[in-house]
Design a protein around this nucleic acid. Structure first.
Lengths: 211, 211
DNA sequence: AACCGTACCAAACATTTGTTTGACGCAGGC
DNA sequence: GCCTGCGTCAAACAAATGTTTGGTACGGTT
């Protein structure tokens, strides 16, 4: 991905998560450092050809990120499915999830946020279960005891745990008796964000259906 | 509230819940039946003076509903707090709730939806607990087994239960062993909507905090 | 009756905004 | 060397959009 275009996508994502209209062409230029509206226009055309952006109607500020665009922008980053146990699974999302996130976040501190889908049962004690959506706000220094998204092993591994700092060490505690705590040096873990909300449908009926 | 202005507010709310930018002055006029952009402008000025709308930045399509505006628009309808046991409590909302609802609903079937805050523990079995937010989609005929919002006693009483139809009767089943089923004639209950999502923060840590 | 405020319209105006035109420099391939 | 594609700029154009101006009609007040 062209770095300029990536910058544009990121800015579009930022604006989409912020209250207010999508940016104008010149606003984009101002943001990403392009002095000619034409240049922005040029990149926008490419991005539209390649399916990263969209137009909803005609007129001013009708630009919109597509699903592909959100993905490429990265900072919306349904990073992937969080494995309570191990590993990062295939990224999976839908437009509904995006728009859900977009508004859950609007009006917030300006911090970036995103959605994750949970895989695993290690946090059932915090009402987080397999398949739930998490609304995560980026925050590298949340309070002790917060439920956080942590990156381990240089980013290869993502997990949701409750955070406790202990000097040079970081304790990541699951909330499920069957899972074990992780205790690692602070350098080896990067706190990515804090879980703001858990979103899920009501539990399926014991017998019947309803969904 | 001036009916014209109410119409404008409603349209603004509609657009805010829809993907795409806020409407232009002329688009508003088209919608509410005003042929002069000036007239729309006029009402917009009044609405801004009275604190129903807002401007975020300068330029095109920077109009925004304020909390007061959302409330006046009315179609967002945080009807009230649902008492799992009895009674409808005071309506309570905040900007967060509004914006949350706005996006959770966007892109949906066109049915109206709203948020409710749960009071009571009668549905813990369906992962619905006291204080949770419910995203409810209006639906008078949901499938058997769905978790629904039901109005009893001519609307005086609101409750969340799982729905089962039995001939002329309707069974509303709580999911908490300590609560009793409600079995009433179909005429005495009005199904208001179906619970799509449950939204809540992660459960507070057993010991510490983090929120 | 004269006056005032409100709601509305048509038309014009100024600004913003999307888009087009024309040009420059650079890298890579033929 | 020469051509092509790309990224960039400046400038202009055309469409849209927010805003202003001037005017009409109506109802209530003084």
């Amino acid at each position: 991905m062209h770095p300029r275009r990536l910058g544009i996508l990121r800015y579009l994502a930022l604006r989409a998560r912020t209250e207010g209209p999508p940016p104008s062409v010149r606003e984009i230029g101002l943001e990403v450092g392009l002095r000619s509206s034409q240049t922005v226009h040029h990149h926008l055309l490419r991005l539209e050809e390649e399916g990263y952006v969209d137009h909803v109607g005609r007129g001013a500020r009708t630009l919109r990120l597509t699903g592909k665009g959100w993905e490429a922008a990265g900072n919306m980053a349904l990073l992937g499915r969080i494995a309570a146990g191990r590993g990062l699974e295939a990224v999976a999302f839908g437009d509904e999830a995006y728009s859900l996130a977009a508004e859950l976040l609007s009006g917030r501190s300006g911090r970036r946020s995103y959605l994750l889908r949970v895989v695993g049962q290690s946090m059932v004690g915090a009402r987080i279960e397999d398949g739930d959506l998490l609304v995560v706000e980026e925050d590298e220094a949340p309070a002790d005891g917060a439920v956080v998204v942590a990156l381990l092993g240089g980013g290869d591994e993502v997990t949701v745990k409750r955070l406790y700092r202990e000097g040079e060490m970081v304790r990541l505690r699951p909330e499920n008796g069957e899972h074990e705590e992780i205790l690692v040096p602070a350098e080896e873990v990067r706190i990515q964000g804090r879980v703001l909300y858990v979103v899920h449908p009501p539990r399926r009926s014991p017998s019947g259906d309803g969904s």
